[in-house]
Simulated assay, not measured.
Amino acid sequence: MSNSHLFLKSGFPRAPLQNGVGRYVCQLQRITLKFCKNNGSSRGMRDFIENHLLDFAKENPGIVVYVKPRRHRTPVLVAEYLNGEREWMSCRNNTQEEISKWIDLLKTQNGNSSSLRLRKMWHTEVPSIQGPWTPFLLRSPEATGQTYPNAEASKPLDTPQTATEKLIELFRQQQLEAGEEAHDALNKKRAE
């Protein structure tokens, strides 16, 4: 087993600021595009800046976009989130479409949660005061002393009559009454 988890921060998974309860708040605060003006590995980043950056900035007014040219360096995306986390991504030899996809991915994330060692797989802001649920919680006390198989416990429950069954029953009663009236009328004619 690896000991790499010893150096990670630990905590509980939780939605930042209960995001999505009232309205969605984009967690990406600012993104920095670092690139070289001459290097061939920055061609995709330069193409993205020339063709798609203005559209991205207009579509996402809540995200601050910085463009930082650097000499003889590989292109890098640096995303900073509202929770203070920073995510760094190398974009060496990526096309403008790939960079656009990476930026969309960074926009939909809520920070670098992969560098967090989880103590539990779930967390709630409002824990239950009623205690944990168990399968025996709403079970009747008489069922605890029974031995199975039990003929009485396997009987079907008396369920109330459905509306369809009630209509079928009324229809049959009407047919019987109509049949009896027709039979009585026949007997009267024969008697006369």
Rank of each mutant, 00 (worst) to 15 (best):
S2D: 08
H5E: 15
L6D: 14
F12W: 13
P13G: 00
A15C: 15
A15K: 10
N19K: 01
Y24Q: 14
V25D: 14
L28T: 00
T32M: 07
N38M: 08
N38G: 10
N38P: 05
N39Q: 12
S41W: 03
S42R: 02
I49G: 00
I49A: 04
E50G: 09
N51C: 14
L54N: 10
F56T: 06
F56K: 07
F56G: 00
K58G: 13
E59K: 06
P61W: 03
V64M: 06
Y66C: 04
V67L: 09
P69M: 03
R71Q: 11
R73T: 07
L77M: 00
A79Q: 02
Y81H: 00
L82K: 10
G84P: 05
E85R: 04
R86T: 09
E87S: 08
M89V: 12
R92D: 05
T95L: 05
Q96M: 07
K101P: 00
D104M: 04
L106Q: 02
T108A: 01
G111S: 00
L118Q: 09
W122Q: 05
E125A: 12
E125R: 02
E125N: 04
P127R: 00
Q130P: 03
Q130N: 08
W133A: 11
F136W: 08
F136S: 09
L137G: 01
R139E: 10
G145H: 02
E152D: 12
E152H: 01
E152M: 07
S154G: 06
L157Q: 05
D158A: 12
D158S: 12
P160H: 06
Q161I: 09
Q161A: 14
E165H: 12
E169L: 15
Q175G: 14
A178N: 14
A185G: 06
K189Q: 15
A191H: 11
